[in-house]
Computed example of a mutant assay.
Amino acid sequence: MRNITLRQMRVFAAVARYRSFTKAARELHLTQPAISQQIKLLEIEVGLPLLEHVGRQIHLTAAGDELLRYASQVTELLREAGESLAAMRGLKRGVLKLGAVSTAKYFAPSLLSAFAPAYPEVTIHFTVGNREEIIQQLAANETDLVIMGRPPRELITIAEPFAKHPLVVIASPKHPLAGKRRIPLERLGSESFIIREEGSGTRASMEHVFAKRGVPIRVLMEVSSNETIKQAVMAGMGIGFISIHTVGLELAAGKLVMLNVTGLPLIRDWFVIHMRDKRLSPIAVAFRSFLLEKGATIIHKTAEESRSILRAASAQQ
């Protein structure tokens, strides 16, 4: 393994990522024969086949899977080294890899928009997924920081709260409970709910508070999208338990109402999370500090501005 080069590792990682010599060659600005040659030299050094061809498909062998894990670590360490040295030179460049659960997508762009002007040379890789997908990215070191409402218990992380996360029950304005005051939570035991999928942080919070009060949840439909919950509730199919950050515009427009349920909203926190053993790049450190200092204010301000714009538009109609 002593004679393996960084170029060979980069070539191998690109082929493994795309499962294609052609696409790897295009990314690395090499010819396809050059890609093939580097892979052959790497396999000679390793002493095991790394790739296998099944028809027109390229697959990793067991040795290929194992080497890819180390190749990814090497690439990440080089990136971190480059950014650390850039910071020592006083440069504000690098790559910020941020992941967020789907509920956070409603405010995360505002956070990034406020952060980015101070770092014009920074490239931001922003991914949105369900809770399981974001946890997998975190565990695989594919992201520097993640934003989610409930820290993962299955990983050893550092989780820091930076903003409040209210969870509410929504209904159609035509629902019999709309406009009523101090609705007992027990009254909702007879209502039909449209809820998020198993494993969702919002669903886990709902199940916890309902179970604590001994209230059953009648599930009419289980979905993986907040948008689908909102549309189904607006159509009168049932009621929903959802983050208030996802329904600000619909509430302001009168398309949805927030039920006045005793003990709600349920106030949780938004967390910025990274693996405990992860050495954060200077850019990731800067964004983490930015969230802890200004995140809550920006989220609140963005929500207020959206509601003000909607009210002004409604007044002109």
Rank of each mutant, 00 (worst) to 15 (best):
Q137V: 00
Q137N: 09
Q137F: 04
Q137D: 07
L138I: 10
L138V: 10
L138Y: 02
L138F: 02
L138K: 02
L138T: 03
L138M: 12
L138G: 02
A139S: 13
A140V: 04
A140R: 14
A140Y: 00
N141P: 00
N141F: 05
N141S: 07
N141I: 01
E142C: 03
E142G: 14
E142Q: 15
E142P: 00
E142A: 09
T143A: 02
T143I: 15
T143R: 06
T143V: 15
D144W: 02
D144K: 00
D144I: 04
L145P: 13
L145K: 09
L145H: 07
V146F: 09
V146T: 15
V146Q: 10
V146W: 09
V146G: 08
V146K: 06
V146L: 13
V146P: 04
I147M: 10
I147N: 06
I147R: 07
I147T: 05
I147G: 08
I147Q: 06
I147S: 09
M148I: 15
M148E: 15
M148P: 07
G149S: 13
G149M: 09
G149I: 13
G149F: 12
R150G: 00
R150H: 09
R150M: 10
R150D: 10
R150I: 12
R150Q: 11
P151E: 06
P151W: 05
P151L: 09
P152M: 07
P152R: 04
P152L: 04
P152A: 09
R153Q: 06
R153G: 14
E154D: 14
E154T: 15
E154W: 05
E154G: 02
L155E: 08
L155C: 11
L155G: 11
L155M: 12
L155K: 13
L155R: 10
I156Q: 14
I156R: 14
I156A: 08
I156W: 05
I156C: 04
T157W: 01
T157A: 02
T157E: 03
T157G: 05
T157H: 03
T157Y: 01
T157C: 11
I158N: 12
I158W: 01
I158Y: 04
I158L: 11
I158M: 06
A159H: 12
A159L: 10
A159T: 12
A159W: 12
A159M: 05
E160W: 03
E160Y: 02
E160L: 14
E160V: 10
E160G: 00
P161R: 07
P161E: 04
P161S: 11
F162G: 07
F162H: 06
F162M: 08
F162C: 13
F162P: 04
A163N: 05
A163Y: 03
A163V: 13
A163H: 07
A163R: 07
A163L: 09
K164S: 12
K164G: 14
K164V: 07
H165N: 15
H165P: 00
H165A: 11
H165C: 12
P166N: 03
P166E: 05
P166D: 02
L167A: 05
L167P: 03
L167H: 06
L167F: 10
L167M: 14
V168G: 02
V168S: 05
V168R: 04
V168A: 12
V168N: 02
V169K: 02
V169S: 01
V169Q: 00
I170K: 01
I170H: 01
I170G: 00
I170W: 00
I170F: 01
A171D: 11
A171G: 06
A171R: 13
